[in-house]
Design a protein around this nucleic acid. Structure first.
Length: 556
RNA sequence: GCGCCCGUAGCUCAGUGGAUAGAGCGCCUGACUACGAAUCAGGAGGCCUGAGGUUCAAAUCCUCACGGGCGCACCA
């Protein structure tokens, strides 16, 4: 694996030297143990390793003794300023500041691409996320899945994966007829009929269907209300579903989230893929007929119960098209298939794995992430979200109230699998209480300085990065050198929360630097070097925010 | 009852088997005649739910208990 960053270059170099030392000392097979990590504590160097502790059992040499030998043997390594033995057997490395400073040039050479790497080796990944039913407005948990999926896609692309983004549209089945039923009732209501007092149990009562009814009436003036009968429900529902899907697309685009494909369940059914997947399972011997229904024997693959695929009335359960859809994903040649599912799909994971395995695909290539619930609060008060009642907060309400940037930052700050509370009061705050502005403000400050620099029309001199020697400048270099591997970590661990954390650290380091040092009114050489430094910081900040789908304003 | 997720500062949450467990908010004390104070410097605040176990080393891995959330349809 080639180095992904300046820091990673140092890591590779140091590791190579340590391994050759160990080999010379007669210790082999320790490759696994020699890992260089970014220490959690300040004062433990730029990189640290505990291989001596980990290998003590095999080397039979006390860790500190081994490290002292290594220390006296250590050759000159360009990246390394110094190394020291610490604690029970840690080895801490301090990197040469001048060597680190090259990161400034690296960033400035490709400001919009810095952070990219070939870690993923162009493996093809299908990422499915959101996939909200087209039967009503999206709620906030869909927004969380959208933000998480989108940022994972952006980071995985940056980390060298080929990512294909897909939204699965459940535009078939009973729920579409139910939606059609709701639309039919609202159409009757437009004619003055009282439908509310006798509203059927399972039909969506939300007001949004009233708007759909008005739109339908305008587009189809010839439609007579007495046509709003049961055998028209599927057709009416299909119309409404497509209409809702389009509004989902609009809201998501506003939220900065797009898809390469909106995959229609109906098209899947029409293509015969459902029958095909049942045949495949039958041929492989994983289908059983019981009680008049056709069951997939998923218990043979660790599921807790078998699953009905064809009901006794001959119709399919929703599981059939889903199985066909997933089979199709693998048939399309993806190396990895990742699903982001909502918390109500817990029970779904085992059967999906089972069907993938039963169809002969490697089950470890299907990865299912559960994006957990979002509880909306206003201060202490819980805001209820329910598609049934009219009092839910839709994603578009959230965007309007909080704004895209704060909403995305909040949703991405926490690990996706952790249930979270989203305080609307906090996200709505425009001031310093809102962490997203802290990060954006760092960039806006740099923009402001650069504007003044351009207005000065002062003398430009060649950049000498060797002039950057202060602790604050060095901290910025170290952080920038880490950026590409933060992106890799987000991609690899499917953990977007590392990025907001990193950007907060970077902004803090910049603000501290800004307070401690002047930039424009110092001598020209140092000024030029610091300008180069903050230009690089701005580039990294902007790119980091872009990976989160958040803007970097030039002024605030 | 079974399965999955989660218990970390007053609140919301980070934390890659490592060293003295971190951040933001809230609270307290300081800092602009200086490139943007939406900032900075510092302080208080912890039995990492509990009990065992593995390990040189556990918030992290394993087991059990307790507490919270969500799933467990011939619904989608």
């Amino acid at each position: 694996m080639p180095a992904v960053s300046r820091l990673d270059e140092a890591r590779h170099e140091i590791r190579r030297v340590i391994l050759s030392f160990l080999e010379g000392a007669g210790f082999t097979g320790l490759d696994e143990v020699v890992r260089l990590e970014v220490p959690t504590e300040k004062g433990h160097g730029d990189l640290t390793t505990s291989f001596a502790l980990k290998a003590a059992g095999r080397t039979k040499v006390p860790p500190r003794v081994l490290l002292e030998q290594l220390l006296s043997w250590w050759p000159d390594v360009p990246a390394v300023e110094s190394l020291e033995v610490a604690g029970p057997g840690f080895l801490n490395f301090t990197l040469r500041t001048r060597w680190l400073a090259e990161v400034v040039n690296q960033v400035r050479a490709m400001p919009g691409q810095y952070g990219n790497s070939d870690f993923g080796q162009q493996q093809r990944v299908l990422l499915e996320y959101v996939s909200a039913n087209p039967t009503g407005p999206m709620v906030v948990v869909s927004g969380r899945a959208a933000a998480v999926g989108d940022t994972l896609a952006r980071c995985m692309s940056a980390a060298g994966y080929q990512v294909f983004r897909e939204f699965y549209v459940n535009d078939a089945g009973n729920q579409i007829a139910t939606l059609g039923h709701a639309l039919a009732l609202r159409l009757r209501e437009l004619e003055g009929e009282d439908v509310e007092s006798n509203w059927p149990e399972k039909v969506y009562p939300g007001d949004y269907v009233k708007d759909l009814a008005k739109a339908y009436r305008t587009l189809h003036p010839e439609f007579a209300t007495d046509q709003a009968v049961e055998d028209r429900y599927p057709e009416l529902g299909a119309w409404a579903a497509e209409r809702i899907r389009q509004s989902q697309e609009t809201v998501l685009r506003e939220f900065g989230v797009t898809f390469d494909q909106w995959f229609s369940e109906r098209s899947l059914r029409e293509s015969g893929a459902a029958e095909a997947v049942i045949d495949r399972l039958r041929n492989r011997g994983y289908m059983a007929e019981r009680e008049g229904a056709l069951w997939f024997t998923s218990t043979r693959f660790g599921d807790d119960k078998d699953r009905v695929m064809v009901k006794s009335d001959g119709s399919y359960t929703y599981f059939v098209p889903d199985a066909a859809y997933h089979a199709g994903k693998f048939d399309r040649g993806f190396d990895y298939v990742i699903d982001l599912l909502g918390p109500d799909h817990h029970g779904y994971v085992n059967r999906m794995r089972a069907v993938v395995e039963a169809l002969g695909y490697p089950p470890e290539r299907l990865e299912i992430l559960i994006v957990q619930l979002v509880r909306l609060l206003r201060g202490r008060e819980l805001v209820r979200m329910s598609k049934r009642g009219g009092d839910f907060v839709a994603l578009e309400d959230l965007i309007e109230e909080a704004g895209v940037d704060p909403a995305r930052f909040f949703l991405l700050e926490r690990a996706p699998e952790t249930p979270m509370d989203f305080d609307l009061n906090l996200a709505t705050l425009k001031g310093s209480d809102n962490p997203v502005y802290y990060v954006q403000y760092a960039g806006a400050r740099i923009h402001s300085i650069l504007r003044q620099w351009h207005a000065m029309a002062a003398e430009t001199v060649p950049v000498d990065l060797g002039l950057l020697t202060s602790a604050e400048e060095r901290e910025l270099m170290v952080l920038m050198a880490r950026f590409p591997e933060v992106v890799v970590r987000v991609a690899e661990d499917r953990a977007p929360q590392h990025l907001p954390k990193y950007l907060t650290d970077l902004a803090a380091a910049f603000h501290a630097f800004y307070r401690a040092h002047r930039i424009l009114d110092v001598e020209p050489g140092l000024r030029q070097a610091r300008l180069a430094l903050i230009e690089a910081v701005l580039a990294v900040n902007t790119r980091g925010l872009a990976l989160l789908g958040i803007s970097q304003p030039e002024e605030m």
